[in-house]
Amino acid sequence: MAETSVFGQTRGMGELIDLDGKETDLAPFGNELAELGRERPEIVGLTADMGRYSDILPFRDAHPDRFFNVGMAEQNLVMAAAGLAKTGKIAYCTTYSVFVTRRAYDFVAIAGAHSKADVKIFAGMPGLTNGYGATHQATEDLNMMRGIADLTIIDPCDATELRQVVRAVADIPGTVYVRLLRGKVPIELPPDYRFVPGRAALLRDGTGVGVISTGYMTARALDAARASLSSGVDAGVLHVPTIKPFDTAAVVEFASRFDRIVVAENHKKTGGLASLVTEALYDAGVLRPMIRIGLDDGFFECGSQEYLEAKYGVDLPRVVRALVDGT
């Protein structure tokens, strides 16, 4: 039965949750890109009728002659970006993650990655950050995209990291897929945090249980680790923003120091971070009991992020339970 509380409404604009008491940064992607565009004239921006909904409008306003809205045509978005790249441009393009992955996959693989084209895809509203149900929720995008050779994949945690990623990808050769957080994006990581492409970051040391996480689930992991202290659990947190290439060495080193591992991601439990961690640890012979926090296979409902996270078992209490109870 449907709830009727105002709190429980689907947010059409997809505001992120947990903003209470958290500092936020409005449209960090577009603002950083507008600034970077001033420094680097070879940067161009594209969208597929998702400018307003992907935060790229600050770039359009600052550099209107270097901005193209191709209309709601995701395949054309990637092809045009690849063509621009072949004339020496660095093409940043945006739409929702679900549409660029499912619809434009072949073009990302061939016109983008295979062609080593400087196409930087900022893919909005990944996983359950989108409340419009399975048609709009990219819950298998990491799985799909990791199957493409020569593609870099990044899942930033917060606004601090996203701003750094905007700059970093300009110097990563070839095609890059970034999961984009939009709107009022929380600031979760410390000011001295530095994103290094291809590297995992130890955010918190601990004993007994270690969390390996990516994307905004790292914020959940940090909150859960703090919340679990009162139960006598001192969890470590390893943030893995770059999904491909995968920082196998850091993951193996981290896991080997803990008795058990929790993996947390805004994605299905299969084919994403948990699968990568399992492969890395198994290959290295570092076998630890592991709890995977993520989505079971399926298509997911519409609803607010709070509602969906609780329903599908990826909210803060779920992470705390994994740390404290080990279940």
Binding site: T4, Q9, T10, G12, Y132, G133, H136, C302, Y307
Partner: peptide, 23 residues
């Protein structure tokens, strides 16, 4: 609303809706 058979974008959970339409 959360849990409704009438989501903001159509799915075939609603009687009379023939296709999943949001993409």
């Amino acid at each position: 609303l959360n849990g409704s058979r009438l989501p903001m974008s159509t799915f075939d959970v609603t009687p009379g809706v023939e296709i999943v339409g949001g993409s």
